[in-house]
């Protein structure tokens, strides 16, 4: 009988990295196409996994088809290495591959993430894998997949521009928070996954490859390094990231990172802390004078 303490996987019962080779090949073929057409959503078969669809299976399938014995994996969920979703995904990959894992952004070769891009600048040899719940940036303005595919083909994004315009008319500003749409290489409108607007500028001309996987919606798309990724904006209503003016992380004192707002239940006081926990821990260590490896 397996209990929480002695849980194990008979890894020999699984292929390396869980997926069968045929599934990996299909994902690999589609991934190469995705890189060749930046921002375009390539449909793929999306296999069953021991994790429910919509819980990171798109990102996970990319990770499993990419990973090799020499890789070092980092998994984060909203910037956090220790959340349940991140831990489950990391353990599944560990137990079916035996690869090493890390919480240090600089040590990882593959970084699977949900809803954040690490604060530390990544290196050229690192690959960022983003979990995507809704890959279609036009879905809110057009429910039909057939129609949105045609709109992408014709580069007809007027409905999305109208949504932004209506925002301004109604609220005086563009009200999209996370998953703020971007234009890739002046051609494809793309959903950057529900990362905060804070992270959008990081994708523009980034020096690393980003892969996006949507398991439930069965799409893979990619941003190669050094690609133009521009957040939608109007001349008189420029794109703006979240502002944390006058606020600082309660742990490391950072004023240059994306902060989470939490409320102290007893006092009702609003507190702020870094959303990227690994970066925050590293800064705390540095402040205590412990030697840590430096990324950028």
């Amino acid at each position: 009988m397996q209990t929480a303490e002695n849980r194990w996987f008979e890894t020999t019962n699984y292929n390396f990295a869980f997926l069968d080779e045929g599934s990996k090949r299909e994902i690999r073929r589609k991934t190469l196409k995705a890189v060749a057409i930046p921002g375009y959503q390539v449909p793929f078969a999306s296999r069953e996994l021991p994790i429910g669809r919509g819980w990171g299976t798109g990102g996970l399938q990319l990770t499993l088809s990419l990973i090799g014995k020499k890789d070092c994996l980092k998994v984060i969920d909203q910037g956090n290495d220790d959340s349940v979703n991140a831990v489950s995904i990391r353990r599944l990959v560990m137990e079916t591959t035996g690869v090493t894992t890390t919480e240090e952004t600089g040590e990882a070769t593959l970084i699977q993430t949900r809803h954040r891009i690490p604060e530390e600048t990544l290196r050229e040899d690192q690959i960022l894998i983003l979990q995507v719940p809704q890959p279609e940036p036009l879905r809110r303005v057009e429910p039909s997949e057939e129609v949105t595919r045609r709109q992408h083909a014709e580069m007809d994004y007027s409905a999305k521009w109208l949504q932004l315009y209506e925002n301004i008319v109604k609220w005086g500003n563009i009200t999209i928070g996370a998953d703020y749409p971007v234009m890739v290489q002046q051609r494809y409108l793309m959903a950057p996954s529900p990362i905060p607007r804070w992270d959008n500028p990081k994708i523009h001309q980034a020096n690393y490859l980003s892969l996006y996987g949507a398991g439930r919606e069965k799409k893979i798309y990619a941003i190669p390094p050094y690609t133009d990724v521009v957040s939608l904006h109007f001349e008189d209503y420029p794109f703006e990231v979240e502002s944390f003016t006058g606020k600082a992380c309660r742990h490391c004192g950072s004023t240059h990172t994306f902060l989470d707002e939490i409320t102290d239940e007893r006092t009702g006081e609003k507190l702020y802390q870094c959303s990227d926990t690994a970066y925050c821990k590293k800064r705390q260590k540095e402040q205590r004078g412990t030697e840590v490896s430096h990324g950028n």
Binding site: E21, R28, T31, A36, L66, I67, L209, A222, P224
Partner: peptide, 16 residues
């Protein structure tokens, strides 16, 4: 399993 993984990563890196 492992040699095709290696080749794929080299192809992906080349394509990127």
């Amino acid at each position: 399993v492992h040699d095709t993984q290696f080749i794929f990563r080299k192809l992906l890196d080349a394509m990127a």
